[in-house]
Design a protein around this nucleic acid. Structure first.
Lengths: 208, 208
DNA sequence: AATTACAGAGAACAGTTGTTAACTGCATGG
DNA sequence: CCATGCAGTTAACAACTGTTCTCTGTAATT
């Protein structure tokens, strides 16, 4: 791994992370475009001007949050799509994995869903680029399945995009259901499973 | 129709509409949660206090915008889903209709896509309720198709929800492509058509 | 013709915002 | 051990915000 950081740099990264965490919490009930720099520093307990040591603006902070929220998710993709077992098994596993991820990182999921179409262009683009990377990775994994025999590259990417969008949509619905009843969460999972199953059936009968 | 409005009420509705229009334009590069009341009145050219004659807050304005953006869309649903012709024809027609609607009401589409998961709870809920109404209507139309024989009510609603989400996603992608090249718009339409076709195939092979 | 209702204007309020400048204290590298 | 770099502080700025109260002109009502 990388060289051990000095006391100085370690403390800096600590407050930087504190800023990111505070921002993420504040963003639970507003959008990035209304997030104030002073609001964030106040929540952390540092002077407003300290913000500039880490980010040029809240827009920059947002881009960093995209990295934090989605950057660590790539290994999960491969594991899920390329998992052993039949189609039904993979789907069930995927839905469970989404549910679990939403429960352990609700603020991250909320942020991505909110800012994907949000009011800050650079953040939108950062999210779009990450999601395109996801789709590309899903495509590569899908290509390994025997069901993909005879599929064109474009069609595989089309299917991968559909899966990625569906996953995000499911995650967002599940997030809303977090504050509702256990039955509601169960219902969301069930519907999402059916929808992915339907897509998988469409996939099996695509050619010919 | 309703009674003809007096000069007084007519003028009021005129400035009210001016406020809505100005807000919609300002929301092209920010989110509702950062939209200021003064900002809107300034764009219209009226005193800030005039705002209160029409809305209690920008949040209220947002709810009114949801009505304006989605309320007039219901008749379109029925026409599209229940149109004559085979599945392929209906899909082509739907994609064309989406593209046309985005081109004629880009700000409306942007607003809905942005605020669906945005930072203002009441607006989110208003959008969700409208979309649920859409899904219900799509379900009713889908039920009339011969392909729906043997489908449960829940499964039909599941499919309808998938279609609605897919339509919104397509509209949002097409919106982004508006500022890009004609080829990009063409590509978005093509991919969306394929995805809906795949879903339709899944639908045909759902049972059994 | 006189009275009322009410959309919008105007001024003022306390509080907030982003940004600049000059500073302090301390970990780091020579 | 001393000089430098730099994370974080303090103070101040002009500009902006939502909201209240008072006022004005005129359409609507009687």
């Amino acid at each position: 791994m990388s060289h051990t950081l000095g006391i100085r740099q370690a403390q800096k990264q600590k407050t930087r992370q504190a800023l990111l965490d505070a921002a993420l919490e504040l963003l639970e009930e507003q959008s990035l475009s209304s997030l104030g720099l002073r609001e964030v520093t106040r929540a952390v307990g540092v002077a407003p001007t300290a913000f500039y040591r880490h980010f040029r603006s809240t827009e920059d902070l947002g881009v960093a949050l995209v990295e934090e929220a989605l950057g660590s998710l790539h290994p999960m993709i491969g594991d899920t799509v390329s998992a052993a077992g039949d189609s039904a098994g993979r789907i069930e596993r995927a839905v469970d994995l989404i549910a679990h991820h939403v429960e352990s990182h609700p603020a991250h999921v909320r942020f991505i869903a909110r800012e994907r179409h949000g009011g800050v262009q650079r953040v939108r683009r950062a999210i779009r680029e990450q999601l395109e990377r996801f789709a590309e990775e899903v495509k590569v994994e899908l290509a390994k399945h025997p069901e993909s025999r005879g599929w064109s590259d474009d069609d595989l990417l089309m299917l991968a995009g559909l899966y990625v969008d569906q996953m995000l949509m499911t995650a967002s619905l599940y997030l809303e259901a977090l504050e509702a009843s256990e039955e509601e969460r169960e219902r969301v999972s069930r519907v999402a499973t059916c929808q992915m199953r339907l897509i998988a059936i469409g996939r099996r009968n695509w050619l010919g």
